[in-house]
């Protein structure tokens, strides 16, 4: 079977690391490049972490340089409360094969790989969209060579930074607005989707724990997030990312008597590996349902970074995105278990 050629544009980031681990494990994917970008933590950390993970996992794909800040927005903080100050929750991992960044930027590496793959390349963007936006601006014909952009970002209900904005998109809303209107097919996997596959730490341990070539990664990962949820100060910070889930049917089809519009089902105590859930869609397309919709990104005002999904067609635009609905937890667990078969062999 023909592998799907992909590049992963990311801001590692612990969940980015799991996405990379997952991509590396699958015989369905041909990972051509890792492109780090500033996001969860500063660029100097995300780029170093990208190299460390690639070196630790023995990956031989390209690793590009990337954008060290958003297009227009000033840096306003980071997500160190989720990922640790270094972006990798203080993990000690060996860069066994001594990977470093190549002396080329993401916008040229992505374009080169897209041209090489003759229209089959899928860009999997799980951090802020700065690198992708610059690629589109520098290479307007990119759309002729890219099959799809799979994005982790956004929300059509509650956000995890501001009331409606999700972190990756909030970090660089202008880049998102450019990417959404690029004409390239997009699958948008936001919080509404990823939180559906939140795991308890026990469930996660059951999937990935025990002997494997990546045991020291998971031991440190699980220990960090167990502490995060048990340490009151850290938990308070972490609770900012708690969100609610609105049932899809209730939102889209309000003409339902006595609907169980499910606002208020929170996900306290569930750990969401956003980036890995997004990437997993390439391995199991039954992981979540998608709906074609027109999506725009607010760049101004209180809701900057909100992905506005026009479910009711007010804006009279053609759909530009496949918007992901809630992901299936059991299917995601199966993906994680399958991944671990690779690392246990």
């Amino acid at each position: 079977m023909k592998k799907i050629p992909i590049v992963i544009d990311c801001d590692p980031g612990t969940d980015d690391a799991v996405a990379l681990m997952l991509a590396n494990s699958s015989d369905l994917l041909d990972l051509r490049a890792i492109c780090p970008v500033a996001g969860n933590v500063a660029y100097r950390n995300t780029s170093r972490n990208a190299c460390t993970i690639a070196g630790y996992l023995g990956m031989d794909c390209r690793i590009s340089k990337g954008a060290d800040r958003a297009m227009l927005k000033a840096f306003e903080g980071d997500a160190a409360y989720v990922h640790g100050d270094d972006g990798m929750c203080g993990m000690k991992l060996p860069n066994s094969t001594g990977r470093t960044l190549e002396d080329k930027y993401a916008w040229d590496v992505i374009y080169e790989e897209a041209v090489k793959c003759g229209g089959e390349l899928v860009i999997c963007a799980v951090g802020p969209l700065t690198n992708i936006a610059i690629t589109i601006m520098k290479h307007p014909d990119l759309r002729d060579y890219v099959k799809r952009i799979l994005i982790m970002g956004g929300s059509f209900t509650q956000g995890n930074v501001t009331p409606y904005a999700e972190y990756n998109i909030w970090y660089d809303p202008h880049a998102c607005e450019l990417v959404l209107h690029s004409g390239i097919p997009i699958t948008l996997c936001g919080l509404d989707c990823t939180t559906g596959a939140g795991l308890t730490m026990d469930e996660l341990e059951e999937c990935v724990g025990g002997e494997s070539r990546v045991k020291d990664f998971w031991d440190q990962y699980i220990s960090f997030y167990r502490n995060l949820t048990s340490d009151p100060a850290r938990r308070d910070a972490g609770e900012r990312s708690i969100r609610q889930v609105v049932t899809t049917a209730g939102l889209i089809n309000p003409v339902r008597p006595n609907s169980t519009l499910n606002i208020g089902r929170n996900i306290v105590g569930r750990h969401v590996i956003h980036d890995a859930i997004t990437l997993a869609y390439l391995l199991d397309s039954s992981l979540f349902e998608v709906r074609p919709e027109y999506v725009a990104c607010e760049t101004r005002g209180l809701n900057a970074g909100q992905t506005v999904v026009d479910f009711r067609g007010h804006l009279k635009q053609q759909p530009n995105c496949d918007v992901a609905m809630a992901a299936d937890l059991e299917r995601f667990k199966a993906v994680l278990k399958k991944m671990m078969e690779f690392y246990r062999a």
Binding site: P163, Y164, I242, A296, E298, R300, G301, L302, N303, Q306
Partner: peptide
């Protein structure tokens, strides 16, 4: 002021 969200009631339940 929003380009797409003018008139949005920003409900912050947290």
């Amino acid at each position: 002021d929003g380009s797409y969200t003018q008139g949005c009631t920003v409900c912050d339940f947290r």
